[in-house]
Amino acid sequence: MATANEPPTQSSDDENKGPLERWTHGVLTDPAKRDRLYRALFYVACGFFLVTTLFPFYWLLVLALTPNTQILAGDWEVTVPLVGAEVPFPTPQGFNVYAFVEVFQQVPFHLYVFNSFVLASVTTVIVIALASLAGYVFGRLEFPGRGLMMLAVLAVSYFPPAAFLIPLFDAFLGNAIVVPFLGIELFAPPRLVNTPGSMIMPFSALFLPLAIFILTTFYGQIPDGLEDAARVEGTTRLGALFRVIMPLSAPGVATAAVLTFIAVYNEYFFSSIMALQNEPNQWSPLVGGILSYQTQYTTDFNLMAAASIVGVLPMLILVVVAQEKIVSGLTDGALKE
């Protein structure tokens, strides 16, 4: 009965309001209008994130395709005509696809990519294997001091990696370990600089805590019954871990593996020091390769950009593949408890 009276009063209200006020009122009262607003906001937010994440890649592409002389000269035509106005937007000055070939001609860039890939793969395998054991222990077993040990492991991950650098470098050079002040030689470690060992060991140690933390959470959520069933059926505890608990924690394992892999693939700080020269046969990593386009007097920005794009590609493929695994793991892993 109120409906008969309402439209006239509302319209008289509307007449007194400004357009913004009318619109806000409409959004608050009309669900269809509200949905439209939400959708619009979604696209705005989405667009914002896409632009901020993808623009650097576009900028790399612009730099790679622009000949280096033009990059150095500056003075670009950075505006494009858009809806009648000149909008500032960088576009490639020329189409120098040859840069992507030159990347490999000037420097054996593929070797640097290979180095980083091997370092990252081996580190990931070691980290996942060790973190699985630790995650099983922390996530599924009850023992005194568990919380304290977990805290200690996490505390290690908060240490700045630079703090380990000097003692490790000293040790990896093959110098004898000497008791401070007394001068007693304990043992002489093997000379590991310029070998993958000098990089994989510190990487594994540095990225283990995070992986342990992730896997502890995931392994702790697998029902005890499944592990018990596997053990009664004929596995050891270790067998149950690898045959039942790990496959069911696939999303967690994939997350830990991808994070570790990306972190090591991008790593430069440790490896630049452990590889004494920036040479691919001394296990210098990807970033070292990119930097080698810079000489004392010249910097090939276009080649550095092209090399960056080439270096990102394997990572891109890996993440896409792992993403599929993560999603399938999430949907398949519905546990009956």
């Binding site: 029902p223 499944l226 018990d228 069933a229 009664v232 039942v244 398949d332 009956k336």
Partner: peptide, 17 residues
């Protein structure tokens, strides 16, 4: 695994994967 026993669990405990 070496006891020659098998078990049926309350929560059924089939391996979901």
């Amino acid at each position: 695994k070496d006891r020659g026993v098998s078990m049926v669990f309350q929560n059924i405990a089939l391996f979901p994967h």
